[in-house]
Structure formats: structure tokens, C-alpha cells
Amino acid sequence: MVSEALSFILQLLIFPGFLFIICLAFFSEWVLRKFVARIQNRMGPTYTGSGGILQPFADFIKLLGKEDIVPAFAERTYFTLTPLLCLTLPLTALFILPMTGHRALISFEGDLIFLAFIFTTLTIMVFLGGFLSGSVFSMVGGVRAATQLLGYEIPFLLALFGPAIPASSLSISKISTWQAQNNAWGLWTQPIGFGVLVICLLAELELLPFDIPEAETEIVAGWNVEFTGRRLALVRLGRDVELVLASTILADLYLGGPQQVWIIPPIIIFLAKMFACLLLIGYLKTLFARFRIDQVLSGMWKYVIPAAMIQFIILKLIW
């Protein structure tokens, strides 16, 4: 009993919990920066550690040591709460996604709904943090984040719940196990859903075609314009964890998640799938230029939502 509890705490704190996820987040940011730089015919971070691998870590440490400013017009509570929740919400979500084996660290029937709840809360926190920072630019950024939510929320949920139908379960662990055992990856059985989920995750992560809430060339730095020092460090780390979360969702719900192949342990297979999804996200991010907010909304409602619904209808006809 005691050893079980101890092993659970170790799992939660070190592997595949807190420490592992943070390291994975830093590593993913480096992979993404390097990958984007190579596509753009640049070198990317080079001299910090071997091949610049320590660059995200150096950024994080530097930001921790900078001056911490709270603007006079900012709402202090939310100004502090937003960066904290930006980090803790995606971290919590990663605990319910299977990484090392068939079962996630914490797994219960209906954790898919919990995941959807966390994503919506995240955007609402972004909106509140931007709106209450007391700067015009962050206010515009926050409102844009909330407006964008109206566009991608519905197809996102449809694509998120699509894989639950054939597996007839709302538990992420059970869905990925079902896909791995029956060799019916979501990517092959419902390809439209996969595409819709990728698009919506790009919007959720505020990556390039949908980086409207941050839009550096329009509204300075969007909703995080006023964050400095420690707060900015947490926001940035939260972004990295979200990146890991997005690729993990794709790997678990549409690529069968961690599965044993021959003698290769599940975690290696999982990491391979996760980084494949990460590179796909990075490739799309580099490929596109930013849309306008009205283009995003009309595009989502005209094309992406019907696509997600058609996928759902096809799914219901087959299963």
C-alpha cells in the first residue's frame, strides 16, 4: 500500500509526470524552433548547449531573473492568476493522457470531457488576463482570443469526440488502447476529423495562421503584452506545455497512442508519434500567413464545421 502510494507520487513528480513533461516541453520548443528555422533556410539557435538545445531553458531562466512589473491599471489578482493557470491547466490535462502504457497516470470514464473543459477554461483565462492587464493592446488581444474561440470551439469538440464513437468510451486511455489493439487508427478511419482537429489545435495554440490574438505586427504582443519577468516565463512555459499537449492529443486520439511494437517499449513509440504530430504542426505554422479575425470566423463556420459534421455523419453510418 505504502509502496504503491510512493510509486504513484514518484510517477506524478518525475516520470511520466511533472519533471518529464517540463523537460519534454523545453525540448519540443527547441525542436520546433530548429525545424521552423531549417524550413526558412536559417540555422536557428546554435550556440546554447549542443546545437542550441538549451535555448528554451536559457530563455526561461533569464525571464525568471528579470524585473517583475505590475502595471498600475492592471487587475492584480488576474494578472498573477493567468500565467499560473496557463501553466497548470495544460499540465493537469497531460496527466490524463496515456504516455507510457495503456493507462494514463490518472484515468477515469469521461476524462475526454474534462479535457474539453480544460481547453475552454484556458482560452477564457487568456481572455481575462488580456482584458484585465490594463493595456489597450492586451485588451484587443484578449477579445480576439475570445472571438476566435467562437469559431473553433464547435469543430474542435466534434473532432475531439469523434474517436470516442467507434471505441464506445469517453476515456482517452480506452480509446487509444482500442485503436492500438484493433489496428484502426483514427487517422485512417476518420481522416477528415484528424484534419479538423489539427486546424482547431493550431487555432487553440495561437500558432501562425491563427496567431491573431498575439499578432506581433498589429497589436504589439497581443494579450501577453504587459507580462514581464516571472509571469512571462510561466506564460511561455505554458505555451510549450500546450504544444506537447496538442501533439499528445493527436497521437493518443488519432494515432493509437503508446503501443508495444515487437520489443520497442510503448514510450518510444509514443514519443515518435508525438514528435511526428509536432513537426506537422510546425510545418503548417511555417507554411501559412496570418488570417484576419473575420476570415477565421467565416472560414470556420463555412468550411470546418460542415467538414466536422460530415465526418460525424459518416462515422454514425459506419458504426
Partner: peptide, 19 residues
């Protein structure tokens, strides 16, 4: 930009003076 790319040294261009 690509030809000289100071991101090699970790230098990024930021929009906000706070960052």
C-alpha cells in the same frame, strides 16, 4: 533574417518593450 540570422545567438525580435 535568414542570411545572417542572429537567432543563432538566441537573439529574438520582440514587439513589446516589457519582453
Amino acid at each position: 533574417t535568414p542570411k545572417y540570422d542572429v537567432e543563432r545567438f538566441g537573439i529574438l525580435l520582440k514587439g513589446s518593450p516589457r519582453h
